[in-house]
Design a protein around this nucleic acid. Sequence first.
DNA 1: CATGAATGAGTTTTCATTCAT
DNA 2: GATGAATGAAAACTCATTCAT
Lengths: 219, 219, 219, 219
Amino acid sequence: MSEYQDLKTSAPKTPRWQRKKDDRPQEILDAAIELFVDQGFSATKVSQIARKAGVTPGTLYVYFKNKEAILQEVVMKTLSQIFDEGNAILESYEGTSEGLVKILLDKWWEAVGSGSKISGIPKLIISEVSNFPELADFYFKRILNPTYTFILQVLMYGIKKGDFQIADVNATTYMIFATCHGAVIDAHSFKLAQKNNISMDAFKDHLLNIILHGILKVK
Amino acid sequence: MSEYQDLKTSAPKTPRWQRKKDDRPQEILDAAIELFVDQGFSATKVSQIARKAGVTPGTLYVYFKNKEAILQEVVMKTLSQIFDEGNAILESYEGTSEGLVKILLDKWWEAVGSGSKISGIPKLIISEVSNFPELADFYFKRILNPTYTFILQVLMYGIKKGDFQIADVNATTYMIFATCHGAVIDAHSFKLAQKNNISMDAFKDHLLNIILHGILKVK
Amino acid sequence: MSEYQDLKTSAPKTPRWQRKKDDRPQEILDAAIELFVDQGFSATKVSQIARKAGVTPGTLYVYFKNKEAILQEVVMKTLSQIFDEGNAILESYEGTSEGLVKILLDKWWEAVGSGSKISGIPKLIISEVSNFPELADFYFKRILNPTYTFILQVLMYGIKKGDFQIADVNATTYMIFATCHGAVIDAHSFKLAQKNNISMDAFKDHLLNIILHGILKVK
Amino acid sequence: MSEYQDLKTSAPKTPRWQRKKDDRPQEILDAAIELFVDQGFSATKVSQIARKAGVTPGTLYVYFKNKEAILQEVVMKTLSQIFDEGNAILESYEGTSEGLVKILLDKWWEAVGSGSKISGIPKLIISEVSNFPELADFYFKRILNPTYTFILQVLMYGIKKGDFQIADVNATTYMIFATCHGAVIDAHSFKLAQKNNISMDAFKDHLLNIILHGILKVK
DNA sequence: CATGAATGAGTTTTCATTCAT
DNA sequence: GATGAATGAAAACTCATTCAT
């Protein structure tokens, strides 16, 4: 077109690429987790991740050894961020048992339920258990077991205060855990399939109701 | 091609339930579903299916158009076998509401919980929702909605008899459904990862307990 | 052109490919060794090997795990074929020491010197020592050490018969070995570069002469 | 670009032999030759050279057009430094033929045998003959032919003085050359593989002995 | 000049699918 | 029909080279 313009004015040339050393890895991980959760590991192409992250495939290999390393890091990193808050609340909490459960479920739901990055991880793990046993191990050690222990502590709090009467604490703990865990996975997939005609918030309320009055028998 | 019933028209009639000695397609489907459920669709190699089915890769293409067709058929066929029994029970049942729920949960658990072919399907569907929306659609139409309706009918049975007092029938139905559904998926994955130190039967008992006394408030 | 012909006559259609299960691996190895010796491992592309072997790159992976496995096998297989004949001659030989040396050098030259597959291996090994230490180890264990021992035995034969007077048998052995070994490598490269204006046969004669009269002091 | 001497025209003159504090090109070449000799050209990564030279990959391209140019220059430059000394000795030498051979072999061994930069060049050339014919040509023109001529001159010196009786001067020359050349290559590789249980110095002594008494028949 | 993150052209590798046997 | 070697299209990965900083 006007080839001269560029010569005279300092035309805004489009740089072929941009240096973003510090941000790149996270951008890649953000792109990757969404695709992994959505499509699964094998079905996700590195070119897709790259495109979504706004880079070329080669760039992925500047920051990660290979596709599998991206999965590892995305899971580990995402999982490592959870639950600190929960423990803090538990330690300093002084109110009713019912209130405690409510607060923690709210927090958990906020972190996991609504569509955060984290919410897809359980589904991803479950899909890939047998392909990446190390990841499943990590998930068990870092998430499931702590969560289990955490729920157990909440129950003990209520029992000590005389609010909960629970026959088999272990089974009850497991039940609550399984219900919530199943809920996230279902919620996630249902959202993907856009078939949920029950609002997620209503779902949460019922979940709380069942835990409190169904499982924990709060009067 | 995959309409295997039609393959041997001149063959002597055998009862439908008896596997023909040369029932290649079914052997292939049996091999396929196990691998798909375990590893996911993409991660499963055609050669693996063939090896597990005791044939060679080429043979798969005698009976199925391609790998995807195997997935389609395996899911459709497996899913098509469910729930006939349940409806039959419901229609002729005359006992207590509590007994009905118990019987149906037992049946369902037997079919789905213990490790049958079917038990892996929900996990498979959830893993592949976004890759095979048609399958998810089918699953919703043929399984989830009927199940939902089925649970609803059970609840109506109990309400009509005055056994259940339920504020929001839809939500309660969904709750029961989600709890059971999550349970299968979790159960399946936990088994894979061999991490379940709570027995599946104990889990079922608690599930029944929660449904009856937690959700349905049976006295 | 004449699209009808094919329909009527059994025109010689060119098959897209040909089954040659038993021959393929060797054809691939034959193609590979030549390229590896000529260009080195890294500089050789699998597509080159494939083209030279008359197959597509994918076929290589039917028979070999990866490019490196081709190198391993080509070297191991080629090296494993040497020297059995030499030992047989040594065991039953009854003539003069000088004649023995002559016969063995002739055999060796025939196998290694003239441009056989084997003749390039020493060069290849030397080029890739530090990249494939396992190969070098194999070469040392299977070729260099046996050769060394073999030369030593020949010298002992001559010493016992009183034909050779050798001050330091180890050093002399090594000297002969190094001279021959260097000769092959040089010979190979010089041929590649097409710079040898001294015939290889003349070279061999001088080599024999030096070994006999220079190193071994045969009168 | 690679004419690094011209880079700093306004720089204070320093004696040619003193390395400039900021002599990047030479540092790069030093790093490169070691890696090329060790691993070969293709297997050596530009980033390795940069790291070893203490710079970043980009810097290499400030001084050299590309990776191949580094090879060219490293070989040419290293080779250009040889043999001046040898010719000087030859021209002014007046002693015995045997002494001349000994002195020259010592010099040569010192320059080439012990592990100097130069000692790897023959191996490198031989490995890359067919990938870089120009280099091989250069090697032949600048090294092999001069060396050949040089050895020939030494032999003529001895013949003229009546010390050597040689039937075929060309063949003898070639023999000496090939023996020495092979020796360097072997020595180099054996060192890499750390398998030499015969000391290099002992090897040199035997080499001299063979040349003098085996090939040249000095009494 | 020096940097080193980003590229993209090329290489290796995979594997669903075909088709000569 | 059954086979499984061979394919080829596409995926993962490499790395010399560039160029914004």
